[in-house]
Design a protein around this nucleic acid. Structure first.
Length: 216
DNA sequence: AAGTAACT
DNA sequence: TGCG
């Protein structure tokens, strides 16, 4: 068993509380960056990144794909989880073991033991892409946390409260940072500001985000 | 609905 | 901030 895949294993990770029930593990996934990016490429070779439509007919600025038993999709019919990729008609690619291990260990570091996600949404942000404030509320089990992994270019994360009108805190996130939220914070609004242009040694001009959930 | 626009 |  490898003991040093992730920062914070065997030592105290740099942990920041951004709200009650929400923490950032600084750099936790940084060492695994190359392996995580290779796994993203493998997933995307089977289920390509695509720009989905919101129910209102707008095109999302972040390109998305999924892996795991369930994938999050949106189109004019609404938001939901699907066992198959609508683009390929096939099951979503299986969740890489490295993803499962990262999600589980990050959740444990944040106080959520035995987290076993069945869905991983992979978002790719290029300059100009953003994600407006929203709640994750399409899952069956709100007792399980959300684990969100940042790779590549930095971005500003917003974490608000249970109402959209609650003013969010702004948290700069960099490569390898992992945000975990659950409990009371599980339904809180969150999003990211517009990605600014840049160049990252591992990802070039983009940022990837892995969002792990227990959806079913 | 994870969207934009139009204000202050 | 309010929108629908």
């Amino acid at each position: 068993m490898t003991l040093d895949l992730f920062d914070g294993e065997g030592v105290e990770p740099r942990r920041e509380t951004i709200a009650e029930g929400a923490v950032v593990l600084r750099g936790f996934a940084g060492k695994a960056g190359p392996g995580l990016l290779a796994a993203i490429d493998l997933v995307a070779s089977q289920s390509p990144f695509r720009h989905m439509q919101t129910p209102g007919g707008h095109t999302m600025s972040a390109a998305m794909t999924c892996c795991g038993e369930l994938g999050w999709v949106t189109d004019r019919r609404g938001y939901r989880y699907e066992p198959r990729d609508p683009v390929t008609g096939q099951a979503w690619p299986r969740m890489p073991e490295l993803f499962l291990k990262l999600a589980s260990e990050a959740a444990a570091e944040a106080g959520f033991e035995n987290f076993v996600p069945d869905a991983c949404l992979i978002n790719r942000y290029q300059p100009g892409a953003k994600m407006g404030l929203h709640q994750d509320r399409d899952e069956q089990d709100f007792s399980q946390p959300i684990v969100s992994v940042s790779l590549g270019l930095p971005i500003v994360f917003q974490f608000g409260g249970p109402r959209r009108s609650d003013r969010p805190v702004r948290v700069p996130l960099g490569h390898g940072d992992v945000v975990v939220w659950g409990g009371l914070a599980r339904r809180h609004y969150h999003g990211v500001l517009t990605l600014k242009a840049g160049d990252h040694p591992l990802t070039g001009a983009c940022r990837y985000n892995l969002t792990f959930r227990k959806a079913g």
